Computed example of a mutant assay.
Amino acid sequence: MFEQFLTPAYLPFAITFVVMIGIGLIEAVGLGLGHLNIDGNSGIEGHQGVLDWLGLGSELPILIWLTSLLGCFTIVGIAIQQGATAMSGGPLPWGAASGCALIAGGLLNTLAASGLARIMPGFETTVISTDDLLRRRGTILEGTARRGAPARAKVLDHHGQAHFIMVEPHDDADAIPAGETALIVRREGKVFFVVPDENRLLQSI
């Protein structure tokens, strides 16, 4: 069976299977690429309906959807070739088999993606909004943060992931040197404004 899987008639499905395994490994090591979601609000008429039909209109991560599609394509393709061999004594040409498998696999994946989305309603992502960093403490890494002269700081989100941001003191008179910690209180564009922990108002926080 393995030798048959490497013949030209089965080669597209063998390649697809290897790619599917590769994507699965990427997910397993936690690179997070599968947490990218398709935004259905593109402003194009009927776009959301197409995404729903493909199974992309839900919150299912894109790499999980793609892995499902590759799996459906592989399974359907092998089934087509096995059926053709049983009926006619030989598999279909790889191009014809691939075309049929793409159509049938896409239809099957619509059902598979919908099922995955239903059983994964609580899928957690480590992707956060920039504003989620507000009211967290950061550490000045280099330089001294002054008004009009931001410094680079490191802050950990609630997942424990590090983010590197530019910060300025909230108060004009403050200057926060490297190594000091400060509370992030607001944001303007890409710059965050902080209050140093030595501020008396923060001693009880």
Rank of each mutant, 00 (worst) to 15 (best):
A104F: 12
G143H: 08
T74V: 06
A79N: 01
L202S: 00
N37S: 02
M120G: 09
T85W: 01
C100R: 09
Q81T: 10
L111C: 05
A178Q: 14
L69G: 07
T7A: 00
G71I: 03
I103Y: 07
A9R: 00
R186C: 05
D131G: 02
L134A: 03
G83H: 09
L51R: 08
D197F: 11
R146Q: 12
A173S: 15
A112H: 02
L111A: 11
V194H: 13
L92G: 01
D52M: 04
I80G: 11
A104H: 12
G83A: 06
G160E: 15
L63Q: 03
R186K: 04
S68V: 13
L201H: 13
F5V: 03
R152N: 11
E180S: 03
E124L: 04
L69T: 15
N41F: 15
D174V: 08
A112Y: 03
G143F: 00
N109S: 14
F17A: 05
G77E: 03
S98W: 01
A151C: 02
L69V: 15
R187A: 01
R186I: 03
D52Y: 15
E180F: 08
D197V: 14
R135E: 08
R147L: 04
L202H: 00
P61S: 06
L108M: 07
A162G: 10
L102W: 13
D174L: 04
D52H: 12
T125S: 14
A97I: 11
H158L: 04
T85P: 00
A104C: 15
P8D: 05
F5I: 05
R146V: 14
L36E: 12
H170W: 09
I80Q: 01
A153R: 10
E198K: 13
G71M: 03
W65D: 01
V155H: 06
P8S: 05
S129L: 11
I176D: 09
L134H: 07
L51Q: 11
R187Y: 05
M20W: 10
M1Y: 01
E168L: 05
Q82L: 15
A182L: 05
R187T: 12
H170R: 08
T130M: 08
G179Q: 08
I38W: 01
E124T: 09
I128T: 02
G95N: 05
Q161I: 12
G71F: 04
G46T: 14
V127G: 06
F123Y: 15
A182P: 02
S129A: 05
F2C: 14
A113Q: 10
K154P: 10
L183T: 11
T126V: 10
A97E: 03
E188V: 13
E188G: 11
H170D: 12
A84E: 01
L107M: 14
L63H: 00
I64G: 04
L111N: 09
A97P: 02
D52I: 06
I15H: 02
E142S: 13
F164P: 02
I176T: 14
I119D: 07
C72D: 04
E124W: 13
T74E: 03
S129G: 08
A182I: 09
R187Q: 13
A117W: 13
L134R: 04
L183N: 13
N37H: 06
L51K: 10
L69D: 07
S42L: 14
V19R: 00
D39N: 13
G90D: 12
I140Q: 01
E188K: 08
L56R: 08
E59A: 11
